[in-house]
Nucleic acid binder design. Structure first.
Lengths: 325, 325
DNA sequence: TTGTATGCGTTATCAG
DNA sequence: CTGATAACGCATACAA
């Protein structure tokens, strides 16, 4: 800025003002400064700016995995809204281990973000302490709780599981199984489904539980496990994601089973392929881009107004009935 | 650090040293400092650190879209390697508009990253100038050129298109069509495919070109367009992604067409579902996590050794023959 | 092994 | 509308 200022015949401060609030500088000097910037190829140092103003214009976002469209879709809409307000996103993957999250939170906090977006509501005590100590807006997405760190936006996984059980029972199914990936929230949905379905129809509900991330192949293996190892002979299979559901579908076709006659399938997430495979997948739709947008708005509200309104934003879910059940 | 130091009975610098290089501090004082940090919940300010040392430990990464697994997979492996070396990633989506990229590059550069990862080799003149001026390692991924800004790692899209044409011709196909999403590199593959296939088999090659991102539905529309509007009656369909290929498959099934008898399909990307749908999709495999790792290693080499070795890293591609062709 | 002085490139505050 | 001056919180060079 010093150099630019000399070239434009003004001081360093004036250059700073020209950049941060052009209206505070006369049109003439503004033009000269712009020209000098053009000539020198000057790019302001946001690090120094952040240090001086203690506003970094950086937002941290932590998600389990960006390869999963449900998370990357959310990040995409979150980022878009924040970017329009001049914020940049620092994104990291936490994986599914709580300890990793703690370290990442500290690493992010050291960069002094103006706010932080986290996935889920379960965080270590130390993580909560650091977050509280940072004194910035914190939004927890994808799940809701009555005691968020600051604000949470999402839906109830327990309610989802129950609703699916009710739905499947109402459709006439009396036998059920589950195929689930290693996500804590997925497990919570499965548990709620099992409890409710057992209460309605009785019997045990076999579960094929994987620790790895969901994939089509895992879905195939899931149905195979249920049928070959756990005595599942037919009925409805609730999967923790549409990808798994698709795998169950493929495996059922391979085994010559009629869907939904012998094996019915319900997925989760309403991914873009779900309506277009055949049979189309019955699923639970959650509006991930709405999550991202709501989260972003909640953050902006808190940054600007210094005090959010709602602290629990339940965006709900919707069961989409298609051909697979 | 001042506060922590007072609590531990040492000066600010000693605290700084204890954090950046514990071996330079006596075990006793180190213990006292650690205790003081614990008590105060002190989290170092990386902004100030970066300003003072002019090393931000931040790496910028720009990709067209994180919802596309080919990009998010690459980012994932890139991030993992960089994180292990103590770097954080600032990720942004450029979309598919060159002007947006330029603005994003400037925004990122203002945060003084220690290096930058870009997708593709086409950047505006102004962008190149800024990048060169920033004087940091720059790695361009997903494509190769003889004149990278600094270093590029990827594969030749033109060669890919040609190889697919040769492959399809060798399999006996004499009619072809293309379904492509609005990615410049995808278009380049399609063009090379068309040119080569026309030279081999003669005739015109109809193309269903979409401006939007790939999706299963677009794939279905693609085949519909080719057959209903562009006189395509059968043969091989080369798609710019496996998602589109899957859509073509679904549409073909819907129309009662035999695959690969009447319509054969070749995709791109070898996504995780490609081997498991039926018929399994013939595709072009590129090792996206290898791209990310190579890119990360190239960056680390340049940051540490101040001068990279190779400047063009061609990781190639592989045609995976399956049932759909 | 530890401390002192200085500077990194901005913004904020106050004067002119 | 513009300028001087003091932080911001740390790292680096040098000294002890």
């Amino acid at each position: 800025m010093e150099t630019v200022g000399r070239l434009a015949g003004v001081s360093q401060v004036t250059v700073s003002r020209a950049l941060s609030d052009p209206s505070k500088v006369s049109p003439k000097t503004l033009a000269k400064i712009r020209e000098a910037i053009e000539m020198t190829g000057f790019v302001p140092n946001a690090l120094a700016g952040a240090l001086a103003s203690s506003r970094s214009k950086l937002i941290s976002a932590l998600v389990p995995s960006i390869r999963n469209v449900v998370y990357s879709g959310m990040v995409q809409s979150f980022s878009a809204v924040m970017r329009d307000s001049g914020y940049q996103i620092m994104l990291s993957e936490t994986g599914f281990e709580p300890e990793d999250e703690e370290k990442l939170i500290e690493a992010h906090l050291s960069r002094r973000p103006d706010a932080m977006m986290l996935t889920g509501i379960h965080h270590s005590a130390q993580a909560r302490r650091m977050l509280l100590g940072a004194d910035i807006p914190v939004v927890e997405v994808w799940d809701i709780t009555d005691s968020p760190i600051d604000v949470c936006v999402g839906f109830s996984h327990t309610e989802t599981g129950r609703a699916v059980a009710d739905f499947a029972y109402a459709q006439g199914y009396r036998q059920a199984g589950c195929v689930s990936a290693g996500d804590e929230r997925a497990r919570r949905r499965m548990r709620a489904f099992s409890e409710r379905f057992t209460r309605l129809a009785g019997g045990e509900i076999p579960v094929a539980q994987f620790e790895s991330q969901a994939s089509l192949e895992r879905g195939r293996q899931g149905l195979a496990q249920l049928m070959d190892g756990q005595g599942f002979t037919g009925g409805v299979v609730f999967c923790s994601s549409d990808l798994l559901a698709h795998g169950v579908l493929v495996e059922a076709r391979t085994r010559g089973l009629d869907v939904p006659g012998q094996v019915a399938v319900i997925g989760f997430g309403d991914q873009d392929f779900s309506a277009f495979v055949s049979p189309a997948i019955t699923t639970v739709r959650v509006d991930m881009s709405a999550f991202g947008q709501s989260a972003a708005r909640a953050v902006l509200e808190r940054i600007e107004a210094q005090g959010g309104t709602q602290s629990v934003i339940d965006l709900g879910f919707e069961i989409v009935a298609r051909e697979s059940s």
